[in-house]
Design a protein around this nucleic acid. Structure first.
Lengths: 340, 340
DNA sequence: TTGAAAGCGCTAACAA
DNA sequence: TTGTTAGCGCTTTCAA
């Protein structure tokens, strides 16, 4: 391995000082136009590659934004990350992405790892952390954003919505449309906290109407899978055969229930209504189309990135709101039109 | 902002030299067990956070592996990245993830950006790059891996399979099963190169049997969407009404065609057979279940990470093969059982 | 607009 | 096992 080419080499070739080379590589620095051209040419000829690691150390700025999500393989989180990534890029920031696999201990490890890399802000999904994870976030001297949920006790900033309220609204709407025998799949004690919140919202809405809110089926894996939905639906059918409307913590579950019904010859929505959560790409294309809630994941990502940009631009803290509530939208479709 | 706490501070508090603190933070360094305990305690009390940026510069090692994929929102690529990420973590490496949106110019920009951060290896998806992108990869003095495809002229290492051959095999198999009027959706000149390769494989297989291989429908967007499939299927129906078997460049297209059929009352597979590519999670759960090809994305990720680990461990270059072929599997299911 | 000097926080290399 | 010295490649700061 020959020695790496540095700014000094470029400087010598261009006949200037290293400092001028440094400036030439900064878009907005004041360097004579021709000098800059010469420098960039020299750099190109030498095959010089700017070294961010040195720049990061000296300037105490890395341009990193740490982001942890539960899973990469979930189109909602993928949409959020895509939006964050796009938006941050406009501000010259680069996400440092990690996934927790829905495990707070893994989150803690990720947070610790990421903080060592000196990101300029850190984004985590949800408000559930280990004790130490939370401490790390609190002591990090950078903006901390919890997204997707509205934590009861936010570490600092939050961008998201209440999963409980969203599911409450969906359920309430369906009850008003005539659905009275409802069951819920997902959100058991082992699941993702967002799924748990959704289940709570379901219970609150159903109880609020004086209906039976006890037809709940736990799922055992933290991430959502179609297979799991099949198992859960079977359990629902045997324990609560009277259920006419199944609401699921995720569209993936809803799709699983729908496919199980198609296999079993159960007509949806005539015999059974189904609703999901998340507005996955397939939802408007299934037969029947799937009732769901669009949590607008891209909007969450965008608002998160905008918030970071504002905070890093040094906007007076009192001008930046702490909690950023994002919208969600009920999408009532064919799969729940059976009771009218 | 008060001054950051450094190793020097920790050293003073623990009554040792900074070098000893440095060693205490390295798992395998030789430090007296009690000394290390004292140091870590002191660090904890001071709220010290190890500074990777300084470590990276001094040791000329960042622990980063740059990875670019076309899209985050594609479960195949998400699976690959998840596997890479898991595997690299075991070697203390951290992926630096970026997505190109199926655009070689964006890829070039990402490569350039990433190389400045001094990753220890770089992984790109596929073998298509801009001229400069390729040059950057060639001149980077780190292992370069092209994954998912088997490029004709690899930059260095490759881990993947031939999309053309995989689709050829699927098509060939279907022809042998009695499918003789075939059409293909996707892989037009504007699409993802992997989709183009698949189309070529289709053409080769169909022509190979002396059948009409000209029933091809272009899609216009680079990423796969269900909506696009609806449009394409409509075009296929009007231009080639004789088609009895539709093969799609992606499961997402196949799902779109299937849902369009369900809407239109076309019986699958009795009136029309459908096959996709990618073994998406929904494929075994649709009604009918979907014939597809499993390209084993996790395996690609795993092999890629293993290759990187081997190369960084300094294994003699001649011991490490250049091309790593990964397996794929034909999954013949209900959606193509109409011709038997 | 350009340059010189100093140093960001860590660790390689060497010494004890 | 521990310490000393020097310096990784940039950019801050100050001066011209």
């Amino acid at each position: 391995m020959t020695k790496a080419i540095t700014m000094k080499d470029v400087a010598e070739r261009a006949g200037v000082s290293p400092m001028t080379v440094s400036r030439a590589f900064k878009e907005d620095a004041s360097v004579n136009a021709e000098t800059r051209r010469n420098i960039l040419k020299a750099a190109d000829e030498l095959g010089y590659v700017f070294d961010s690691t040195a720049s990061n150390l000296r300037s105490q700025k890395t341009g990193f934004v740490a982001v942890t999500i539960p899973s990469l393989n979930n189109s909602n989180f993928a949409d959020t990350v895509t939006a964050i990534s796009d938006d941050l890029a406009e501000h010259g920031l680069q996400p440092l992405l990690g996934y927790t696999n829905y495990c707070v201990e893994r989150e803690e490890a990720l947070i610790e790892q990421f903080l060592r890399r000196k990101p300029e802000a850190i984004v985590v999904t949800g408000g559930q952390h280990t004790h130490r994870g939370r401490q790390l976030l609190e002591k990090a001297r950078i903006p901390v954003i919890e997204m997707w949920d509205q934590p009861q006790a936010p570490v600092a900033y939050s961008v998201g919505f209440s999963n409980a309220r969203a599911m409450h609204d969906l359920t309430d709407r369906l009850v008003r449309l005539g659905h009275h025998e409802l069951g819920f799949i997902g959100g058991g004690p082992q699941s993702d906290t967002r799924a748990q919140d959704r289940r709570n919202g379901f219970i609150r809405a159903v109880s609020g109407h004086g209906l039976d809110a006890s037809r709940l089926i736990d799922t055992t894996s933290t991430n959502f899978s179609i297979k799991e939905a099949h198992r859960a639906f079977q359990e629902l059918r045997s324990r609560f055969p009277e259920v006419k409307t199944v609401i699921c913590a995720s569209d993936l579950y809803a799709f699983g229930v729908l496919s199980a019904c198609q296999r079993a010859g159960i007509k949806v929505p005539n015999d059974l209504s189904i609703a999901g959560f998340g507005a996955f790409e397939i939802a408007p294309f299934t037969c029947p189309t799937l009732t769901t809630v669009d949590a607008k994941p891209s909007e969450i990502g965008q608002k998160t990135a905008d918030l970071i940009a504002a905070l890093l631009a040094g906007e007076a803290a009192q001008e930046v709101p702490i909690n950023h509530e994002t919208r969600y939208e009920l999408l009532i479709r064919e799969s729940t039109s059976g009771c009218v």
